[in-house]
Write a protein that binds this DNA or RNA. Structure first.
Length: 461
RNA sequence: GACCCUUUCAUCUAGUGGCCAAGGAUAUUGCGUUUUCAUCGCAAAAACAAAGGUUCAAAUCCUUUAGGGGUCGCCA
């Protein structure tokens, strides 16, 4: 059975990079009817925040991802790690190192000056003497000193790193608390993970974790290192260009299905397919089709996807969602008309809400440029005449098609083009030259409201 | 600086030695539809980082160079 995990450290909100790796892991588990587990990496006791955990769960909930079982908190598993540290110590696979921080700093500076990769030199590896006084030791694991550490990455292929590049890294701090690479390996093993999908900023941690796996005799899982998401300029993502809280996307009016569709195609592909329902993603996802190279974050496509999902969403569901964006038309008897007239004009729910308000709320002012164009010539007379025709119409006016008949009769009676009435009428009703179809607008507003708005604008001309 | 990863249109990508004078999508531009805007339809422009090899044949394999990213913590 496939078992994957998402293992964030609770230092802040969830951003799209994290959401994407979580998505990949989640899809892979769901596709294989396996388990997707959540683990909170909070071993650094000074940097924890419960809020951060809530933020992650809120984001998961919004996009509809769920994890199996209970979330695991590393901070509650210190006794387990301690046991393994003692075991390694006993077996001589780990040792106490009495090097002071100052000594370490000096060593690193020297190595860097020589143009080497900074790494611990193993001076206490076989230490048998009397420990220096006043130093609380750290515990280091014995890494291999020769050969290469090789593993097969599911995305990048065989990765080989010289053992000389991997030092005897610290597995327990001088205060006794365990460190990241140690606990990750233990938990990944104990949680029975078969596939670890994570960002390729962890690529260099993998050989270290393999050292732990081997020392403890654990089975090594499959690793998949997904390349980073960069900004449009190909640089590291910053808060300005995408590394914002996932929930910000909700505030900006994006649909979760659009965001997931966007993210799944960032680095992964299934031939030429662009649109994926969640079920399709689950069915088709395979980490072997993840791209090796990093991808650039670009909002255009997300916007396009979002408008696609808005256009294809049921009116009932849209209406419900719109309540959070300041528009409540759930009980409106023209609900379908309103959304059919506007949903192609809003790329986000925020824009859609604006479009709806544009119709539902009488214009407070009339766009200058539009007015200038629309209200020239005989516009005033034409509007007056149109109102008369509208009010004297004999058959009931209900559907957009009914209003269309009125418009048709009006232009033919007066031998004018649609534009002659369309432009002033539109500006009179909406305050702007652009917007939904007049037939729909009038059907939504009804005769009385149309007359009211036109009267008002006529009075200003 | 050292080590590791990576490099196809502006962007996301298809492509695993011949089907590629490189396909799709977004964005852009033009045309059409429309009373406006949007949607939609059609079309255009747009890329194998560079140089050397290997091969009958290379976007695909190898080497070097250049660009980008990551890592070098008693952070995760």
């Amino acid at each position: 059975m496939i078992r994957t995990r998402f293992a964030p450290s609770p230092t802040g909100y969830l951003h799209i990079g994290g959401l994407r790796t979580a998505l990949f892991s989640w899809l892979w588990a769901r596709k294989n009817k396996g388990k997707f587990l959540l683990r909170i990496e909070d071993t650094d006791l000074s940097r924890n925040s419960d809020k951060a955990v809530d933020a992650i769960l809120e984001a998961f909930n919004w996009v509809g991802m769920s994890y199996d079982g209970d979330a695991i908190f590393q901070s509650k598993r210190f006794d387990i790690y301690k046991k393994y540290i003692d075991k390694l110590l006993e077996e001589g696979k780990a040792y106490r190192c009495y090097m002071s921080r100052e000594e370490l700093d000096t060593l690193r500076a020297e190595q860097m000056a020589r143009g080497e990769r900074a790494r611990y030199d193993g001076r206490y590896r076989d230490f048998r003497g009397t420990p220096p006084e006043g130093i609380k030791p750290v515990i280091r694991i014995k890494a291999p000193q020769e050969g290469n550490i090789i593993f097969n990455d599911g995305i990048k292929g065989e990765i080989s790193i010289a053992s000389t590049e991997v030092d005897d890294f610290i597995i327990a701090r001088s205060d006794g608390t365990p460190t990241y690479n140690f606990v990750v390996a233990i938990d990944d093993a104990l949680m029975g993970l078969t596939d670890v999908i994570r960002g390729d900023d962890h690529l260099y941690n993998t050989p270290k974790q393999i050292v732990v796996y081997r020392a403890l005799g654990f089975k090594i899982p499959n690793f998949y290192h997904v390349a980073m998401i960069n900004n449009e300029q190909g640089k590291k993502l910053s808060k300005r260009d995408g590394a914002t809280d996932v929930m910000e996307y909700k505030n900006m009016g994006y649909l979760p299905e659009a965001l997931l569709n966007f993210l799944v195609r960032l680095g992964w592909s299934h031939g030429d397919q662009e649109i994926f329902t969640i079920d399709e993603m689950i069915e088709l996802f395979d980490p072997k089709n993840i791209n090796r190279s990093s991808s650039n974050y670009n909002l255009d496509k997300l916007l396009w996807l979002n408008s696609h999902y808005i256009k294809n969403m049921s009116n009932e569901k849209l209406a419900t969602l719109l309540k959070e964006y300041g528009v409540d038309i759930v009980e409106h008897n023209r609900l379908n008309l309103i959304l059919n007239a506007t949903k192609e004009r809003g790329k986000t729910l925020v824009e859609l809400a604006n479009q709806i308000n544009l119709i539902l709320k009488a214009p407070k002012e009339y766009d200058k440029k539009s007015s200038k164009r629309a209200f020239r010539g005989e516009a005033k007379e034409i509007l007056k005449k149109f109102i008369i025709l509208l009010q004297s119409w004999e058959t009931p006016l209900d559907a957009p098609a009914d209003y269309h008949k009125v418009l048709e009769k009006f232009v033919s009676d007066n031998s004018i083009g649609f534009g002659k009435i369309g432009q002033p009428l539109r500006v009179g009703l909406l305050g702007s030259m652009r917007g939904s179809g007049l037939d729909e607008i009038m059907a939504i507003l009804g005769v009385d409201e149309v007359v009211k708005r036109v009267d008002r604008v006529v009075a200003t001309l």
